[in-house]
């Protein structure tokens, strides 16, 4: 049985309404054909509800394709927001 590797997507700067459309596009197009997503949040300085929604949507899509979905290396402020929505990071798992 071959397991395809997780595809790594690095986001940086703002993950907010200003960039939400672009982030949605990047994350969702990265899913098909991958062995799952690993989203690197190390470069994200700011997140808002729009950004959070996009992550939740991507996780749901990944789950519907039975693909793993991981978030890694968020800054503390971003991690706090993720926790609100029950989004845990790879480090916490």
């Amino acid at each position: 049985m071959t397991t395809r590797e997780l595809r790594r997507v690095a986001l940086d700067g703002e993950l907010t309404i200003m960039t939400a459309a672009e982030s949605k596009e990047r994350l969702l197009t990265a899913l098909p054909g991958s062995g799952g997503l690993r989203v690197d949040l190390a470069g994200v300085e700011e997140i808002d509800t729009a950004g959070l929604q996009v992550l939740l949507l991507t996780r749901r899509e990944a789950e519907s394709m039975s693909l793993p979905f991981e978030l890694t290396a968020p800054a503390p402020g971003v991690a706090a927001v993720l926790a609100l929505a029950g989004l845990t990071t790879a480090e916490e798992q």
Binding site: A20, A21, K24, Q53, V54, R60, A85
Partner: peptide
């Protein structure tokens, strides 16, 4: 707790 039940299908989801 966050309720994301209202999130529509991916293509219908307006990121704003």
């Amino acid at each position: 707790s966050t309720d994301a039940a209202a999130l529509p299908a991916a293509e219908e989801m307006d990121p704003e």
